[in-house]
Amino acid sequence: MTMWRMIGVVGLVVASIARGDAAEIAPDQRRSGLSFMAPETQAMQSDDTANPAMLAVLDGEMLWKQKAGAANRACADCHGDATASMHGVAANYPAYDDLLARPVDLEQRINLCRVRHQQASPLADESRELNALGALVARQSRGTPIEAGGDVRLAPFVANGKGLFMRRQGQLNLACANCHDDNWDRRLAGSAITQAHPTGYPIYRLEWQGMGSLKRRLRSCMLGTRAAPYQADDPEMVELELYLMSRARGMSIEAPAVRP
């Protein structure tokens, strides 16, 4: 296969809007995981022509136009050009779904769209296709402030997520907060402990040598504490995602990001 393709170079917009509320870390101290990375890793993210996550965006562009399901409809048939219709959308996820009466994250929204509107089967959790569409959609919010959790109907779910963040789990008996609220300026062996502000998902993680959603990252963290990780469709998973996004409210989306 020989391919010939060019993409535009888009600079990273680093805004510093601070208006968090539930965050345990003081608003003026909030930092993106980007700021904890080595300059070389930052450079990999900030140059679209060198960011390996942009391969997923490229895949997402192809899938966006691909017809699927019994309805024989592509994302583009309803939503048109993603760069316009999806602008700012990911900044609001997880978002409240009226039919389900609970929050759904971006990947769940994509799959609900497939089932409800394309009459297609949902894409597998962490599949290349699902992360590609997620990366394409999230890419259209780059530089916009995170808004997730603002909907009042989400308040009890945010509170549940916060409770989970504070709850000790696993053989090592650690809560997320033990590291990410109380020790984010320190190092776990050689690795920086970040503040758990999920500004860049889905991400290309060097350790994974590939893409993953916030859910995959949370599962990694839970396995680190030797806890049984939540599954993708467990209510706890989306509540935790929602709490994390709401504590990052006002921070800029930088998806698709690169992380070590």
Binding site: L188, G190, S191, E207, R219, S220, C221, L223, G224, P260
Partner: peptide, 11 residues
């Protein structure tokens, strides 16, 4: 080369 603190292979 930094060794990863937590890896998925730990499971």
């Amino acid at each position: 080369v930094t060794l990863a603190a937590c890896t998925e292979e730990a499971s």
